[in-house]
Design a protein around this nucleic acid. Sequence first.
DNA 1: ATTACTACTCACCGAGTAA
DNA 2: TTTACTCGGTGAGTAGTAA
Lengths: 231, 231
Amino acid sequence: MRLNPTSSWRLLPMLFTLAQMGAYHKAIKISTKHLAEKSDISQQTASRHLIELSRIGWIKRSVTPRGCLIKLTESGKQPLKDLYSKMKVLIETAHPLSVMIEGIVFSGLGEGAYYVKQEGYQKQFIEKLGFRPFPGTLNVNLASEHDAETRRELENYPAIEIAGFETESRTFGPVKCYPILINNKAKGAVIFALRSHYDVSVLEIIAHQHLRTHLRIKDNDKLHLEIFTMP
Amino acid sequence: MRLNPTSSWRLLPMLFTLAQMGAYHKAIKISTKHLAEKSDISQQTASRHLIELSRIGWIKRSVTPRGCLIKLTESGKQPLKDLYSKMKVLIETAHPLSVMIEGIVFSGLGEGAYYVKQEGYQKQFIEKLGFRPFPGTLNVNLASEHDAETRRELENYPAIEIAGFETESRTFGPVKCYPILINNKAKGAVIFALRSHYDVSVLEIIAHQHLRTHLRIKDNDKLHLEIFTMP
DNA sequence: ATTACTACTCACCGAGTAA
DNA sequence: TTTACTCGGTGAGTAGTAA
């Protein structure tokens, strides 16, 4: 996880200040002293930051006795663009990108496996979730009233839609699912059958592996689920 | 200056992480340990940051033995919104918000005063720049080729437009101007008469005060001009 | 005027740990 | 389990200064 941890915030203030002063668009001439005043740091720190920014290739800098010319490089614009797009989603989206839910593992009736195994579902899981689910579900009870509240709100957030289908013998209804991260480690998904035999205080989890084995999970263990909504 | 210095970057990473985890939109339940893992810092630091965020009122936090409920307050959303809107302008605007130009003061022919004094201009200056200009202009020569280049680019950036007008005796042409900050201290504006008797290597500055007195400027002094474009 | 080196300080971080 | 205290080490920021 955290493959792109917003590129470390350490040099962002300086990068942002430079960008705001025009270095995002053009080469600007600025002395470390002036830059220091603008950023409310010492001239020495400004100098050091410029050296570091230059070293990691975020700015192109040519030092002259009369000040220096500075321009952000394309790779220097990237962390700003990354942060911007994350903030855009955050602020302009009316729902959270992900919600955390805690649940307690329990043994269900094993009925989930029957549904998950259906090729009509499997094909869509592979296509839309990116993995072929282990034929079985892990059942968790929501741990607290706060989790139940979050579970209720989740219904309103956009999900991955799995279409219903028919076989020779019967009809299978449509399903909603959300990708999840279990205990901050394993990928999976929660599935909400629109006609589930469980109530709203229960989640059904599928994953590529058999989670009880893979994560050494047993009944009554508490699981931390990060549930991702669609943007 | 720097009345709103992007609200100090110190606690922004933590605030942003919380926001991304959903605390921007709803109360989330999260332990300091979990938060620490997500943010790649220690549990102790996470705890301390939460206390600080809570103390300055950026988050509402209720601590329970089993973790804590956290939600951003309105004033906590503000620094994120501020940063977002600054980044929006930065990234989605095709030109810099301001450019720096260095210039050398020289004495012109004193002709600027005649134009600046015209009531037809003055009324618009007051309305659009927010000050009544001292009747006179400060002339500066651009200090280097880089400054001349910036001056040329400036022509393409949106300006405050001052309309031309007629008196009984003659016609006065339209003028463009940009608000400026002189030596990071005094407010003013550069004016570009569309029919100027100076060439493009010269800037004419107006300000509320007599700048030579107010900033103790004399001929051949070097001035740092921050020239603000219109968004 | 500049930039940026070498010291040095101190604020921040994290280990240990109490509650 | 939690949260959050104390305390000691570390590294980021600054002062002084050379070039």
